[in-house]
Design a protein around this nucleic acid. Structure first.
Length: 487
RNA sequence: GGUCUCGUGGCCGAGUGGCUAGGCAAUGGUCUGCAAAACCAUGUACAGCGGUUCGAAUCCGCUCGAGACCUCCA
């Protein structure tokens, strides 16, 4: 593919990417609910869309990337007594909800930076857009697609479905949805179990509360994305992304809200990233099989044999296509780790390649294949496959088996920079004073000194100790062997 | 139960009608004091059965298995 094609969930097909107002591109991605630490599954989605963002920018589109922070309105469940996740956590820990929000927003940003994802251009919060959310609710009520009851406002899905296709995105049919609903909870004040909350009345327990025309309450979860995406990207924008698990009902509700309020579907291309699985099952907090980024970096987790560098984890994720599930395992991570370092080692070789007058390398062809891979719905695993073809070429040049000239080397370097550093967002890792390497080295030196001492080779033993002293490393001989520390 | 997706060689994972994906692991070789690295070579992989076709991992049907969504989830 010579131009970018992306898979649109709405049509179920790969479509040529044609922005509404080129060269501008509006990109909205559903961000996290900040009531606990992000786990690896969450991170995968944001890394997937980081690639989308990066490649669009590489193609010189003027991207406005909006990713929200859900800091209110996300309910524990759909029942009437459903409690806001953040509100609940705050109550349980006797904290102000905004402390929870701050703690986990910082954690989220920290992890996104560690994974080398680019920051969104705008990162709006639900609590910062209460006024806009109230306005759109009033609008939807005025259009007749929402009703108030006991201080809460619900979207009338049945009425909406009479004129619009509710389920267009997720491929669901309204009749099947109605018959398929399980709970026949008589407590439910909604007209139909499919209806979803636009505004919820706050119970006395609920500490996050705002004034509204319907009394004290808080906004429904689905609403914020409709409001904030259109506020910052316009009533029609190009790409809306999110995890596959948000397709229904979250994104379906977003579409319904937008159509009810503005009479049109806001989004041109819907993109959905697939799940990270563990032993075949979706990694999620509720299943208790989630792994936190820090646990993976340090290896401090019962299911992990060792720690992995964030760039290795990123590389691992990019070796699968964003629309496929990816199964997490120690073995798979270890394979990626070796591959990643093979790639990085080859890249470092470029600067010291022998230069010839002639070239046997068709760098333009590599470039073409790289572009073709990414143009095909951001196919990063194919790109990585092609990168390893180039790795082989680089190593062969280094070994003197293949000849190439300076011009080709320059182009190669630029190409690697574009695709590895800019598009895939991978960066070399080895230079930042790796503690485990230091420990390994010191263990080695201490062991060699021990051997010298056992054979009463005091000259060698003392020379090692003195030279380490000069490096500000103190060796201390104790009863149980030597220890060391940095002065 | 309903809707949908997936099942690729030891592992991970691309690929949607004919052309070696790739990484890791494995085996043989070149190189090397020995290793490592690198390079070269090596895999009757497409859940099963049946069908369509000159030709199927790829399309269709059935069977088996796994998963996702239908309730909060990236």
């Amino acid at each position: 593919m010579d131009t970018l094609h992306i898979y649109n969930t709405l049509s179920g097909k790969k479509e040529p990417f044609e922005p509404i107002n080129p060269p501008f591109v509006g990109l909205y991605v559903c961000g996290p609910t900040v009531y606990s630490s992000v786990h690896l599954g969450n991170c995968r989605t944001f890394i997937s869309f980081d690639i989308v963002n990066r490649y669009l920018r590489y193609l010189d589109y003027k991207v406005r990337y909006v990713r929200n922070i859900t800091d209110a309105g996300h309910l524990e469940n759909d029942a009437d007594e459903g409690e806001d996740k953040i509100s609940k956590k705050a109550r349980l820990e006797s904290l102000d909800p905004m402390q929870i929000v701050q703690t986990y927003s910082l954690d989220f940003h920290d992890k996104m930076a560690i994974f080398n994802t680019l920051s969104p251009d705008i990162e709006p919060t639900a609590t910062g857009h209460i006024v806009e959310q109230i306005e759109i609710i009033q609008n939807i009520i005025a259009k007749g697609y929402a009703y108030e009851i006991n201080g809460s406002v619900y979207f009338d899905v049945i009425k909406y479905a009479e004129v619009e296709n509710y389920g267009a995105l997720s491929g669901r049919k309204i009749d099947e949805l109605i018959s398929g609903t399980r709970d026949l909870d008589s407590q439910d004040e909604k007209r139909n179990s499919l209806d979803f909350a636009l505004w919820k009345k706050a119970s006395p327990l609920h500490i996050m509360r705002w004034k509204s025309p319907w009394g004290i309450g808080f906004p429904g979860w689905h609403l914020e994305c409709s409001v904030m995406s259109t506020k910052y990207l316009g009533e029609s924008f190009d790409i809306h992304g999110g995890g596959m698990d948000l397709k229904f009902p979250h994104h379906e509700c977003e579409i319904a809200q937008n159509k009810a309020a503005h009479g049109k579907h806001a989004v041109k291309y819907w993109l959905h990233g697939n799940m990270l699985t563990f032993e075949g099952k979706k990694m999620s907090k509720s299943l208790g099989n989630s792994i936190l980024p820090d646990e993976l970096f340090t290896g401090e987790h019962p299911l992990l044999t060792k720690g992995f560098h964030p760039m290795v984890v990123r590389f691992f994720m990019l070796q699968a296509h964003y629309r496929s599930t990816l199964d997490f395992s120690n073995e798979a991570l270890e394979a990626s780790e070796k591959g990643f370092f093979r790639l990085m080692t080859a890249i470092k070789l470029i600067d010291s390649l022998p230069v010839s007058d002639i070239t046997e390398v068709d760098i333009e062809n590599h470039s073409k294949l790289f572009h073709r891979a990414m143009n095909d719905d951001f196919n990063s695993p194919i790109l990585i496959g092609h990168l390893f073809d180039l790795v082989k070429v680089i190593n062969s040049i280094s070994d003197g088996r293949v000849k190439t000239n300076q011009e080709t080397i320059d182009k190669m370097k630029a190409l690697i920079n574009d695709f590895v550093i800019d598009v895939l967002g991978l960066k070399p890792v080895d230079e930042d004073g790796n503690q485990s390497v230091l420990n390994g080295l010191m263990n080695l030196i201490v062991e060699m000194r021990k051997r010298a001492r056992l054979s009463k080779d005091w000259d060698t033993s003392d020379a090692i100790r003195d030279q380490l002293n000069e490096l500000k490393i103190i060796v201390k001989d104790g009863k149980d062997g030597a220890t060391w520390e940095i002065k």
